[in-house]
């Protein structure tokens, strides 16, 4: 399992390939990989967003992400999981988050990846502050993923 907060840009597809090659290796054990990439939009609630700052609570954020992945491990049988989340200044089109789960069969990979992502959205202590054409605003709450 790897959980990482990243103050610089993420290339999610390189990260996936690197983790799969270097950490999982060629074991013949995983038959399914499910990944989710969240990317910054240039709009939100009918406004153009120029850039965004992602605040977090150092220590608690990592701790909550670890708890979420550990909970997923008790609910589904999977081999490994990777969570990388940006912090700091972000521009439109830049990835914000990568969640990936490797399992023997697709059901656990799909379900655990969804679970980790939805729990992250509702429990991991991050806060977005958007810079608009005019002014700034804090995002008040996340939309439901279901």
């Amino acid at each position: 399992m790897l959980i990482e907060l990243r103050p610089t840009g993420i290339d999610p597809y390189s990260e996936l390939q690197r983790y799969q090659t270097e950490t999982l290796g060629h074991t013949g054990k995983y038959g399914a990989t499910c990944s989710f990439v969240g990317t910054m939009r240039d709009f939100n609630e009918n406004e153009t967003v120029r850039h965004m700052f992602l605040d977090h609570y150092p220590g608690m954020t990592e701790r909550q992400l670890e708890k979420i992945v550990e909970e997923a491990q008790t609910r589904w049988c999977f081999l490994d999981a990777l969570v990388i989340h940006r912090v700091g200044e972000i521009l439109p089109d830049q990835p914000i988050v990568l969640v990936a789960v490797w399992s023997s069969h697709r059901g656990a990979a799909f379900d655990a990846c969804r679970y980790i992502m939805e729990e992250l959205k509702s429990r991991a202590p991050f806060w977005k502050k958007e810079t608009l054409k005019e002014g700034e605003r804090w995002v008040e709450k996340n939309t439901s993923g279901y």
Binding site: Y57, M60, H85, W127, K128, E140
Partner: peptide
């Protein structure tokens, strides 16, 4: 939160603890 775990308003707090307050989270 108390010591980096979510806590209810009536959760106990003791000397040396770190208590945090924040609005709904908006990551991902």
């Amino acid at each position: 939160a108390v010591n980096m775990d979510y806590a209810d308003p009536d959760a106990p707090v003791k000397d040396g603890d770190e208590v945090a307050f924040f609005p709904p989270v908006t990551g991902g």
